[in-house]
Simulated scan of single mutants.
Amino acid sequence: MSRAITTEGQVIDVFTAAGLPKPDISILSDQFLAEVRGLKHKNVAAELLEKLLKDELKVRSKRNLVQSQVFSEKLKKTLNAYHNRAIATQEVIEELIKLAKDLDSATKAGKEMGLTDDEKAFYDALAANDSAKTAMGDVKLKIIAAELITQVKKSVTIDWTLRESARAKIKVMVKRILNKHGYPPDLQEEAVKTVLAQAELLCAEWV
């Protein structure tokens, strides 16, 4: 899907084939989106946007577990509808453009909240459950996210994910922090699992 095949059988990057530079999703301009909308072959426009989003989500899957999962599911749902002909090509283009802008907004939201990328990843892990987000509020979740990063960084070792005792110790610590800040008890088990999974993504940079 990320390549277009010419009649000679040569493989050409779809962005080059469309006469467009490959954009950075963080600086996705209205001009670029207008050019995509204006492409003669609408299926190529859809392919461009699909590649852009898949590439970006692949990068984010190594940094922010919840965000990448949420947007990957939205992308999958949109593409399934398109491939099953439930929506037309022009409609899928608009849906993918909206998804790209929403993804960019999700990144900017962390900066507007004063969070680092790592803190935003843990914030998203804690806020994955809407009930928890409503009960706790942004301020408390930001405080918990910052404390989790500080404490988990102090506790992780290179092989902590392989040693059951080390993993259990961090699990207890995470639960203690959630309890201290009043995170809903009935939602803690799932939150702990998500926080540990998020920690696994980032711990290689911490040890």
Rank of each mutant, 00 (worst) to 15 (best):
M1K: 13
I5R: 13
I5Q: 03
T6K: 09
T7S: 13
G9W: 00
G9S: 00
Q10K: 13
F15Q: 02
F15G: 09
A17Y: 14
G19F: 05
P21Y: 07
K22F: 04
S29P: 09
Q31L: 13
L33P: 01
E35H: 06
E35M: 13
R37Q: 02
R37L: 01
L39I: 10
A46L: 04
L48D: 08
L49K: 02
E50A: 04
E50Q: 08
L53W: 03
E56G: 09
L57Y: 04
K58E: 15
V59N: 10
S61V: 07
K62C: 02
N64Q: 02
L65H: 05
F71W: 06
S72R: 01
E73C: 02
K74A: 09
L75P: 11
L75V: 04
K76H: 14
K76F: 09
K77D: 12
T78S: 14
L79H: 12
L79P: 02
L79Q: 03
N80D: 10
Y82N: 08
N84E: 15
N84A: 14
N84W: 12
A86D: 09
A88I: 09
V92G: 04
E94H: 02
E95S: 12
L96F: 05
I97H: 07
K98V: 04
L99S: 06
L103P: 05
L103Q: 13
L103T: 11
A106C: 10
T107M: 14
K108T: 15
K108W: 11
L115S: 06
T116C: 10
E119W: 08
K120W: 08
D124V: 03
A128V: 13
N129A: 15
D130P: 12
S131K: 15
T134Y: 13
M136T: 08
V139Q: 15
V139G: 07
V139T: 15
K142H: 05
K142R: 11
A146H: 10
A146Q: 09
I149H: 12
T150W: 08
T150V: 13
Q151C: 07
Q151R: 14
K153V: 09
V156D: 11
I158K: 15
W160S: 11
R167F: 03
R167L: 04
K171C: 00
K171V: 01
V172F: 01
M173Q: 07
K175Q: 06
K175F: 00
K175I: 03
R176C: 00
I177W: 01
I177Y: 01
I177N: 00
H181F: 10
G182F: 03
Y183N: 00
P184E: 01
P184S: 02
D186M: 12
E190N: 08
V192W: 01
V192Y: 00
K193N: 03
T194K: 03
V195P: 05
L196R: 02
L196K: 03
Q198G: 03
E200F: 02
E200H: 03
L201C: 06
L202D: 09
A204M: 09
A204Q: 10
